[in-house]
């Protein structure tokens, strides 16, 4: 029992430090607020009129939503992706500035150290995702509390998976400078290829979709796990799915387990 208490305190301490640091980091907060504003208010409102493109009076896309509504869940995912993957910087920081050693000589088990850090990072990322939820009105989305709760649950799962992924990256990156470039080259392609800003129309057959888009792009979207995370959130927030609704939670769950276990494997080896 007392051992359990000790470990619990250790986990809480490590989690708390991540959250405190994030709350004090102005730059990160500014990014977390400005990113959704730019994506929703500028890109979203700007492209809104073009979304249901009609060709000679024939409605091409049969998605019964505005572009803003369609984009909204994806912007939540974008904010989570940035914050989670940037979390690697905190891991590199601890390693480079020796803080990790001070934790490693404590009696806290290694997997608790990792879990505490990742839970902290996920909490922060979920928080940044939730900042986007506040803008729901702008996107003309009305949410009930159970929708919000379910969305937060999915967001937390996604954050946990991506934060673990960030930790795996951190183990392979030596410097902060390198990481900035690195993260952008990972986040944006994943985001763009997740059917976040354009739909693969589910009303079309696969043959039609491929006729509309080059096959390689469809392929990239379909193998991208982020696609299914975006799809899951769309399901909850605007009740629209492009894929089998069971896929989203399965992919998010799979990411959390696989990425956390590989991060743990990495961390134990060092």
């Amino acid at each position: 029992m007392s051992r359990f208490m000790h470990i619990g305190r250790g986990l809480y301490g490590i989690w708390l430090r991540e959250v405190m640091r994030a709350v004090r980091d102005r730059g990160q907060l500014i990014g977390g607020v400005s990113r959704p504003l730019i994506w929703l208010l500028i890109l979203g409102i700007g492209l809104n009129p073009y979304f249901r493109g009609e060709v000679y009076g024939e409605v091409r896309f049969v998605i019964p939503y505005t572009y803003l509504q369609f984009l909204f869940p994806a912007v939540i995912v974008l904010n989570i992706m940035y914050t989670s993957i940037q979390f690697a910087v905190s891991v590199i920081w601890d390693r480079e500035f020796g803080f990790l050693r001070a934790i490693l000589i404590s009696p806290v088990p290694r997997w608790i150290i990792l879990l505490g850090k990742i839970l902290g990072g996920s909490t922060v990322a979920t928080g940044h995702g939730a900042l986007v939820l506040i803008l729901a009105r702008f996107a003309d989305i009305t949410l009930s509390w159970d929708q919000v709760a379910l969305a937060l649950l999915l967001m937390f799962g996604l954050s946990f998976g991506l934060t673990s992924f960030g930790v795996i990256l951190a183990a392979r990156v030596r410097s902060f400078e390198g990481f900035g470039v690195f993260s952008n080259t990972i986040i944006l392609p994943l985001y763009f290829c997740s059917s976040s800003i354009f739909p693969l129309d589910p009303s079309l057959t696969r043959a039609q979709t491929v006729a509309l888009y080059p096959e390689w792009l469809v392929f990239l979207v379909e193998i991208n796990p982020i696609t299914y995370a975006v799809d899951a959130l769309r399901g909850v927030l605007i009740n629209f799915h492009q894929f089998d609704p069971r896929l989203g939670p399965m992919v998010i769950g799979g990411m959390t387990v696989v990425f956390f276990l590989s991060a743990l494997f990495d961390f134990r080896r060092r």
Partner: peptide, 27 residues
């Protein structure tokens, strides 16, 4: 242990650093 390289969290206060350390030792 006190290591050769500094290992404090420089973005936290003195008290917070100590409190964190106390937590990971289960105090």
């Amino acid at each position: 242990a006190v290591f050769q390289d500094p290992s404090l969290d420089t973005r936290l206060s003195a008290w917070e650093n100590l409190d964190f350390h106390g937590l990971i030792y289960g105090l």
